[in-house]
Nucleic acid binder design. Sequence first.
RNA 1: GCCGUGGUGGUGAAAUGGCAUACACGCAGGACUUAAAAUCCUGUGACUUAAUAGUCGUGAGGGUUCGACUCCCUCCCGCGGCACCA
Length: 828
Amino acid sequence: MLSRYQPSEFEEKWVKIWDKEKTFSTNHNLPTTTSKKSYVLAMFPYPSGAGLHVGHVRNYTGTDVVARYFRMNGHSVLHPMGWDAFGLPAENAAVKAKKNPMDMVPEHIATFKKQMKSLGFSYDWDREFTTTDPNYYKWTQWLFIQFYKMGLLYKKNAPINYCPKCKTGLAEEEVLPDGTHERCGNKIKKRDLPQWVFKITKYADRLLSDLEGLDWPKGILEMQRNWIGKKEGVVISHNIKDLNIKLETFSAYPAWLFADTFIVVAPEHQIVKILVKGTKYEKETNVFIEETKKISAQQRTEDKFEKKGVFTGRYAEDPFNKGLLMPIWIANFALLDFGTGIIRCSAHDVRDYEFAQKYKISLEEVVKRIKPNEPINAHDNSGILINSGEFSGRSINEELIEDIKNWIVKTKIGRKEITYHLRDWIFSRQRYWGEPIPMVFCEKCQWQPISEDQLPLKLPYVKSYEPLETGESPLSAIPEFVNTKCPKCGGKAKRETDTMPNWAGSCWYFIAFAFWNTEKIIPASSSFPTIENFKLKIKNSGNWLPVDWYLGGAEHAVLHLLYSRFWVKALYDLKLLDFKEPFLRLRNQGMILAEDHRKMSKSFDNVISPDDVIKEFGADALRIYEMFMAPFNQEISWATKSLQGSYRFVKRIWDLYQNYVGNKNFCSVQDENKQLVIKLQKTIQKVTSDIPEVKFNTSIAAMMEFLNEYEPNPQELSKENAKKFLQILAPFAPFMTEEIWRNVFGEKESIHLSVWPKVEDEIIEEEIILPIQINGKLRETIKIKNSEFKIQNLIVEKALKSEKVKRYITGKAKKIIYVPGKIINFIV
RNA sequence: GCCGUGGUGGUGAAAUGGCAUACACGCAGGACUUAAAAUCCUGUGACUUAAUAGUCGUGAGGGUUCGACUCCCUCCCGCGGCACCA
């Protein structure tokens, strides 16, 4: 009757039975107003031709464990999966294969789905969709129209980041610090192209302040804050001598404004032309401007970049020191798009100081030197102010800054102003494989959205769709697509031919999962995109939103997470949603590197395929290994040798439970090994508290510890307790536990729908091992009973009986520290 | 430069004020075997010691505490993000 552990004999079988029994159907457990709900979501994949890799498996297994845990703990659980299949990588791959991505995507999805099923993820496949399905993207297009109507989208012709390899415009967020495209790694160029732009900056303040209260990793929150880059400062107005115009400067940290002696302007700034017009400085200035233009943004941020400038011949009046005239320079280190593009400069700023030295501009000191020999600017933003009017004598700190700002406002020298690093979101792509933007251009009526009943605006199936050199979208070469009638006046008009970026579909997919394929609950007529239908779907599909658990890689720290938050806020303003943040809890999964500690890559030939691992060791062992290998959020290298350890663990459990085949070899509850029962309870406690903390590795370690005690004595546990261990293992090893649950224990219903074992505190800690310290050093341990540990005298008496303790304590102890149940320390 | 994050055996790691190195890998020795694989048993931080036992030990240095991997201060190093940001 004993059978060997051969996962291939039962894993596929259970996938089919779970499908048939609809074990993981969301409809089993729709949330009510009183029930607890958990929407557990993994960042959905882009289905590449390479199939799933072990890095995906880590993320999805972790998410699956959490979903299964809450399901067994009586929560209503939504745990869906879908496909983010639009975008550049898919299109580039299709171009290479000389196929249409429309034909390739379904193949890739089929592969991914098959692999996911073989790993036993408990998704509700009824809610599956792909962003490339017209039935999905009609809603994406509809949302675009809603955002357009609320004034969040506009089209403009402006210098944008352009990738010459991908032949498309890009958002600021898609350009890496070294000036390359985050997808393909090619150098970005500036190019003038008409683009649809999203006014994300309108939400900058809310995107920043609503981060408060999110249960996200600190680092991700910080990266979002960084990217939004809010700075509160003052704008100071200056009269220009002999010219009837004003000049404004921005200062974020106005500590030593009394030291400022000169002003620099960004070369591209419009005011420059006015300053030098008709003067002898005009020629030299123009030469300098042309020179600066040639230098790329990237070169300007390099360390060795030389600070250069030219004098404009003009002077600004200093509102702080009445009568002081500040020479106005143009300098290549001033940035047009930060602050006002004009800076007040002083001796106390390292960069300004360097510039002044080079061009022999006179300087003032307003910070008392601690050591006279130190350079003038070496004060670390601290010190005592001198020669600073009413602020002289005060030390530099946040309070002073606030006072100076208020004083500037009061004296009308300037005003407070807030600047952001965040820029509006370039939303057009000049490529084929994306959602067509549902807008029409009419000479008479300008831009008009297509009417709702025309949705979806389908992407035409074409043979050739390669990007054009002109910077136009390939769709512009298809007259049947381009030529249309104006939705407003009915006259001749042309369609927008740009498509949406690959972020569009993922900006709201978590919302779609909540109501996807729920026509049984909600009338099918609601599938047409209208405001009423959107509201109806959200309202009637259950209170799933927002997402409770969101797990995925940290590479989306800014892009996807920022864009999704933005859409949700806009939808909130449209009263289509009643929450402001999409993801309440975010956890990051660490990358899995190859065995050689490099990234897994085809070109290095070091990729581990989950298919091969499953074939050799089974899905349960793979899942256990990926959860056990390291803390979930930590980067780690694959190690097949370590995988063996997880395989052994799974196999030992299998063999152990073979003892019970035929429902025998248990003992009665009275005859149980008490120590073993205590250990089991401690294990249940540990796993129960670890899973919601995403500490999968220590959960498994605890179960391994228990197995080490349990394995030699399978007959010393009752049937009831033998089942409990199987249950807490079930989220990690769903196949094996189900096989044993049903075929050894003869259960009719899935283990995955059983009720999570309760922690019984009264069983735990009947006996404690108490460490004894002498002068803070561990010398001995004694066993004490749970009932005794509160009585200090008794414990001290017991401790002093130990021969070893006696050796160290010759006279009387000076002091005895007893922390009940934890430690006893004798000071002698 | 600023922000975040980490530094513990041969390796992945555990312990977040109370027995440092749980759990696992690897390694060594042993059992089983004609042999190998698999499996099982024993050992495994360093140093001293035949052993009992002792000393040291969590990146470095200081501090708080009866007691510090854990808290505080000053540094060093790895990883990630931002940055001529005024």
